[in-house]
Design a protein around this nucleic acid. Structure first.
Length: 129
RNA sequence: AAAGCAAACCGGCUUAUCGUGCUGGCGGGCAACCGUCGGUAAGGAAAGUCCGGGCAACACAGGGCACCGUACUUCCUAACGGGAAGGAGCUGACCGCAAGGUCAGCGACAGAUAGCGCCACAGAAAACAAACUACCCUGGCGGCAACGCCUGGGAAAAGGUGAAAAGGCGGGGUAAGAGCCCACCGUGCUGGCGGCGACGUCAGCAGCAUGGCAAACCUUACGGGUUGAAAGGUCAAAUAGGUCGCACUUCGAAAGACAUAGCGGCUCGUUAUGAGUUCACGCUGGUGCGAUUGGGUAGACUGCUCGAUCAUACAGGUGACUGUAUGGCCAGAUAAAUGAUAAGCUCCCUGGCGGUUUCGUCAGGUGACAGAACCCGGCUUACAGGUUUGCUUUUAUU
RNA sequence: AGGGUAAUGGAGGAGCCCGGUCGUCCUCGCCUGCCUUGGAAGCAGGAGUUCCCUGGUUCGAAUCCAGGUUACCCUA
């Protein structure tokens, strides 16, 4: 059963975890995103946690920033089942494009980024073994 | 009917699938939470943060100075720099021979005889006025004369300069002139009447001595305590500390391993005094675990949404607004919910076709400005399109 | 959420408080000429600015007032 929900637990909101993610996490660029990720150490966490950030510098109006965040959340919600990694990640998406992209493109890019995450997830899982 | 302007109001709708925050019922779970069925979920500006108030904490004898703000009058209001009505002024239109009147619009509209200061350039002169040209008079010289030159005086009427030239216009008067005198207008003062008042109006007096700038300083009147939900309150991990207990170890023959004060490099060391123990000298430490405690960090909860509330009706008031009655509950997020996709409808625009004023139909496009963050009242700014009302213009019909 | 500062030739700055001969000045840059075999330096001359925008006050605004735009900074 594929669930399309997007609950609070799947959102990254703890200051310390975010700080750790930005300090230690790996990253890659995939237009229009910069993606940071870090395998989670806490064994109680049973799902991936994600945050989306849209710089105020690029989008002055709050309406535009909200629109991008909503399109991202929608795309992530529909495609998150494609994550097939054995470890759970903290993920940060930073929207680096200067213009507002349509939903279809954002969704497509999210799928691509999730596939790359899967690859790095297998690697990090094999290393400690 | 169309176009323009102004004001007020509105600011897409429906369905399907998936999903989000808050919340009620039921079921499951120790709990966190999960499932399910319901309810509810952004704006007219939520924006800019330009004013005002509530609320909260702290401060606070009274007065003055300084600083900041406001500025026609009366009223509305919790309050305001907001609003309403009115006054005076300016602008425009219309009516009228004119005097004037009506309508609409506009504005930070106190004081320049309280003081100090500034008024570039030009111009003779720019603020206790002033004689460049032209004007008038006296005297002298030249000349037949007209007149010219020089000296002394009168005079602000004319010229030109300037943003502004010292009340305006007309008449009298004069050598020429001058509020020097007079009428009207303007200005100032006094008084009567009307108005709560700004002010209006009438009468008298003053011959005018005293331009502008206060959005320069300033004066007068009135107002202003400071800080803002990151306020404030409650609970409270971790870490270090205080106290108590236990265990181990160290010192000592034993008691026991305490108290007070000072100093320093202040979780500790050292000095002094006391107390305990010993005849006396001397001695009066440390580690670990557990319990408890004050403050309080991370974090959580609260503040947090029922209110100067909304809708309707009636009443009062020219109006802003107020009162009464009945009914309603209308976001509470916090790395920050209110969305995505699809279809249809509707509105507007463009084009084609049929009718050819309205309209119908097909295809395509478009739907703005913009996202609550403690809450209200305003102001300002942004805005596709629509509705209503008023005014103006044009066309058609009667 | 609350608060502050700034905007002037191509670049940086002064001028603003207290309005006028201010689009004035300084440093660098640019252009032309001289000098040099040539270049640099130097010398002489020149061009270039809606003083962020829109209104208002005033005779007159870079300067005073109001509203707006943009940029930067501070408060956890």
């Amino acid at each position: 059963m594929v669930t399309y929900s997007f609950k609070k637990a799947e959102r990254l909101s703890h200051k310390k975890i975010i700080q750790e993610l930005f300090d230690k996490g790996s990253s890659f660029y995939l237009h229009p995103f910069k993606v940071l990720y870090l395998p989670q150490q806490n064994p109680e966490v049973k799902e991936n946690r994600v945050l989306i950030s849209v710089p105020k510098h690029n989008f002055k109006r709050a309406v535009d920033r909200n629109l991008i965040k909503r399109r991202f959340r929608e795309g992530y919600r529909l495609n998150k089942s494609k994550i097939a990694s054995p470890v759970f990640f903290s993920i940060a998406y930073i929207y680096t494009a200067k213009e507002i992209l349509p939903s279809a493109i954002i969704h497509e890019k999210i799928i691509l980024s999730l596939q790359r995450l899967n690859n790095s997830g297998r690697e990090s899982n094999q290393k400690p073994m």
